[in-house]
Design a protein around this nucleic acid. Structure first.
Lengths: 237, 237
DNA sequence: CTTGACAGGTATACAGCGTACACCTAGTGT
DNA sequence: ACACTAGGTGTACGCTGTATACCTGTCAAG
C-alpha cells in the first residue's frame, strides 16, 4: 500500500490528471464536497501541490468544463441544420446528465475557455451553413442560450406533494392536508399538477419526464427559428 | 453617534429588517461580499444575532428572493393572455435588473417559498384563463423556465475583443492580433461578431442590446405557445 | 412586589475553505 | 561538477457559516 502510493506519487502530476481526478471526484461526492484539499488528498498529495498545475479553483472548474465539452459528440455531417443542431444539443445533454455538477459550474463560469468558444462556434456555423443570415444567427444564438448545453433552467418543480412511493415518510393524512393547502393557496398549480399526475399514472410513474420537457422546449425554439428564417426575418426593419 | 447607534439597537431586529438590510447590502457590495458577519456589522449587531431571525444563510437568501418577488407588478387585468404574460415577465425583468445578485440566487434556490409558488401560480392561471389546456399549460411552463424571471441564461457573450472605448487598456495592435486569432480559431463567431459590430455602429455603441435579445427570445416562445394552443396541441397523440 | 419564563443580543469556539509564502529536493542541461 | 528549475511540502492567514453556552431586559402570573 505504502509503496504503491509511493510509486503512484513518483509519476508526477500534470494538469490532465488533476482535471480528470476532479471530474470523477465531483461525480462521486458532488460539487459542494469538491475542495482543493479533498482533491489533493484523493491524489495523494498536499493541497498546495495542485497550484503547480492550476492557477486557482476557478481555473480548475474551467478545466473541468472543458473536459466534459470534450465528451460531446461532434456535429453529424451532411444533415440539415435543424437535425444537426438538435442532435448536438441532445448529445450535450447526455454528457451533462452524466455529470450533474456540470450545470451549476457552467452557469457560473465567467471566463470562456477556448473549448467552449469552439463549441459555440460550431453552432453558429450550423446556422450559417443552413442559410441563416448573420443577423438572424446572432439573435438565434442568444435565444438558444443555455439550452445549447442540453439543460433547461428548471425553475418549475412540480414534484411537490408527492413523496417517493417506496418510502412514504409522511402519513397519508399529512399528505392529504398538504394537498388541501395547495389547492387553496395555489389553485392553478394544483390543477395542472393533478392533471399531470393523472396522465402519468398510466405512463411512467410520478414526476415529470424531463427529457420530454426539454425536447418540447427545444423544438419549440427550433421551429421558431425555422419560421423566421423562411420569412427572411431581419432585426431592423 | 454612539447614542444613535445605541438607540437604533434598542429597536429590536426583526426578520423584515434583516431581509431588507441584506437586500440593500447585496445591492451595494455584491453577492460575494454578503456574509453573515458583514450583514450583522451593517446592522450594528453581533453575527449570531441574525440567527434569531433566520435559520441560516440559505433561508436568508430565500427571504431576499421573496422580497424582490414582492417588487414585481401584479398581473394587468383584462388583457389577453399573451400581453398579460409578456408584461408580467418584463416587470419581473426590471425588478431583477435592479438587483443583479438576484439571478444567481434564484438559480441556486432549492426550497420554493410560498411567494415564489404564488408567482408561478399566477402564470399558470394566465395560461389557463387564456384557454390553454392543463396539459399544454404544464409543458409551456417548463418551456418558459427561467425566462419567467426576466433573465436569459446568458451563455453567449459576444463582448469578446471589444474593450470599453473610453478606457483602451490594451493597445490597438494587441487588439488586432486578438481579432486575427479569433478569425482563425472561431471563424463563425467572428463573422457574426463583425456583422453585429457593424450594425451597432450606427445604433447604440458596442455590446449587445440585452433587452432586445430578451424580448426576441420571449416573443419567439410566446408565439410558439400561441400556435400550439390554436391547433389544440396535446402531448399524447 | 416578587419571580420566573422567555425573546433576543452576546461571546467564544470550531471546522472548513482558498491560497500566499517560504522551503526543500530530485533531475537536467551545460 | 554545478546552477537551474519543475514540482511537491509545511506552515500560516484571513475568511466563512454556525453550534453552544451565556447573559439581560421585559413582561405576566402568583
Amino acid at each position: 500500500m505504502t509503496q504503491l502510493a509511493e510509486a503512484a506519487r513518483r509519476v508526477p502530476l500534470n494538469r490532465d490528471r488533476v482535471l480528470q481526478a476532479a471530474v470523477t471526484l465531483a461525480d462521486e461526492v458532488g460539487l459542494e464536497s469538491l475542495s482543493m484539499r479533498r482533491l489533493a488528498q484523493e491524489l495523494g498529495v498536499v493541497p498546495m501541490a495542485l497550484y503547480k498545475h492550476v492557477a486557482n479553483k476557478e481555473e480548475l472548474l474551467d478545466g473541468m468544463v472543458d473536459t466534459i465539452v470534450g465528451e460531446i459528440d461532434p456535429p453529424v455531417p451532411d444533415a440539415p441544420w435543424k437535425t444537426m443542431v438538435r442532435l448536438r444539443v441532445l448529445s450535450a445533454r447526455v454528457a451533462l446528465l452524466r455529470h450533474p455538477w456540470a450545470r451549476p459550474v457552467i452557469e457560473t463560469r465567467t471566463n470562456t475557455t477556448p473549448a467552449v468558444l469552439e463549441y459555440m462556434d460550431s453552432f453558429v456555423g450550423m446556422f450559417l451553413a443552413g442559410g441563416f443570415s448573420e443577423d438572424l444567427t446572432h439573435h438565434v444564438m442568444h435565444a438558444l442560450g443555455s439550452r445549447m448545453w442540453g439543460f433547461t433552467q428548471e425553475v418549475f418543480d412540480d414534484s411537490a406533494g408527492k413523496g417517493a412511493k417506496d418510502q412514504p415518510r409522511i402519513t397519508a393524512e399529512a399528505q392529504a392536508a398538504m394537498a388541501r393547502h395547495m389547492e387553496e393557496s395555489y389553485p392553478n398549480l394544483f390543477r395542472i399538477a393533478v392533471a399531470a399526475a393523472h396522465d402519468e399514472e398510466s405512463v411512467v410513474g410520478n414526476g415529470c419526464d424531463d427529457q420530454f420537457e426539454f425536447e418540447f422546449a427545444l423544438d419549440l425554439l427550433l421551429d421558431g427559428f425555422e419560421r423566421l428564417h423562411q420569412r427572411n426575418w431581419t432585426s431592423h426593419g
